[in-house]
């Protein structure tokens, strides 16, 4: 286990009942103050991965592998021990702040409740902390927001309130599941800026789960791409974006699918044919091979994970093929 890492996930498997593993051997780690972008389309298993880390996989779910958090194996802990970590040292924010906030209490009360649950603070210091947190979120009038009900706030302010709640106990790890997907672009830019600033001020590591490569390219330090429950690629951001980046064919397909705002307009977007497979129907070899333009018979066995560069790896046969002496 990587003792330096805040989070060290090894060979994580998540499944339900007797079904196949929907998350199938996922490994990654996050260093202190690092933002890891976990990218994938719907059904890729990225949200199940985050729920497994939080210990929130419902019955009859099974979770296998290892989840090391600051040197502690989370899967070996009792439910009570995990509950003590959850919200205190590992916090999570969601796409829809309304689902994380109760409509019937004021924002300030809800943030204070989180603090009361985990920290031994009396009333006055708790109140001060709530207002400090809201100001740290870039909210100009924290008192007004603290005394508001969630429905009285805009989407961006609600998102800030939820982030304030998540950070109220100084977590070591913040899991952000599509934190800006429901927001307008100008508000999204503000929230991403906020997450970057908070990483410095609160010294939290961040697991950023998103389908949006633009978000990842903008703020992640490292990126892991998931496809059909497996890691297709992981590496530093710099290695994966930019004109000369060498990436997994799936990552390349995703990037080609995103229309360009600049440069010549293409007649047709380079869409990936077909659609992501249901994990139950996952092909035996490379899960992406049925949609891949480079697929060959050698993709019928699970692809090796091969290094492309410094800490940059892809699960693909192509680099090995290219390296063979008789390859033209």
């Amino acid at each position: 286990m990587d003792a330096e890492a805040v989070l060290d996930v090894r060979d994580l498997r998540v499944g339900f009942g007797r079904g196949v593993d929907l998350v199938d051997g996922v490994s990654f780690s996050i260093a202190p103050r690092e933002i890891l972008g976990l990218v994938g389309e719907s059904g890729s298993g990225k949200s199940l991965t985050s729920l497994a880390i939080m210990g929130l996989i419902p019955a009859p779910g099974r979770v296998g592998g290892q989840i090391g958090f600051r040197g502690t194996e989370l899967l070996a802990l009792s439910e009570a021990e995990r509950r003590a970590l959850r919200g205190r040292r590992i916090a999570m924010i969601f796409q829809d702040p309304m689902s994380a906030l109760t409509p019937v209490y004021r924002i300030g009360w809800q943030i204070a409740e989180q603090i009361r649950a985990h920290l031994d603070l009396s009333r006055r210091p708790t109140e001060t902390r709530v207002l400090d947190l809201l100001s740290a979120m870039g909210i100009a009038d924290p008192r007004r927001v603290a005394s508001a009900y969630p429905h009285q706030l805009s989407g961006g302010l609600r998102q800030r309130a939820m982030i304030a709640m998540a950070l109220s106990c100084d977590p070591d790890l913040l899991i952000a599941d599509e934190p800006t997907t429901a927001l307008d672009v100008t508000v999204q830019a503000q929230i991403l800026e906020l997450i970057l600033r908070l990483r410095d001020e609160f010294a939290s590591a961040v697991l950023l789960i998103t389908h949006d490569l633009g978000v990842v390219a903008q703020i992640a330090d490292r990126v892991a791409v998931m496809y059909c429950g497996r890691i297709a690629e992981r590496g530093p951001r710099e290695a994966m974006f930019g004109a000369h980046a060498r990436v997994h064919p799936y990552t390349a397909g995703l990037l080609g699918s995103i229309p360009r705002l600049h440069g010549p307009r293409v007649a047709r977007l380079a869409a990936i044919p077909g659609s992501p497979p249901n994990a139950a129907l996952r092909p035996p070899g490379c899960a992406f091979s049925p949609r891949c333009a480079h697929a060959s018979a050698r993709c019928d066995t699970p692809p090796p994970i091969v290094p492309l560069g410094d800490a940059h790896e892809i699960a693909c046969i192509l680099p090995a093929v290219a390296a063979e002496p008789d390859h033209v």
């Binding site: 672009v185 100008t186 999204q188 830019a189 991403l192 949006d212 490569l213 633009g214 978000v215 990842v216 390219a217 903008q218 951001r237 710099e238 974006f241 930019g242 990037l255 995103i258 360009r260 705002l261 600049h262 440069g263």
Partner: peptide, 9 residues
């Protein structure tokens, strides 16, 4: 405010 992954840096 648009985050264009084609222009990351």
């Amino acid at each position: 405010a648009v985050l264009d992954p084609h222009l990351p840096f």
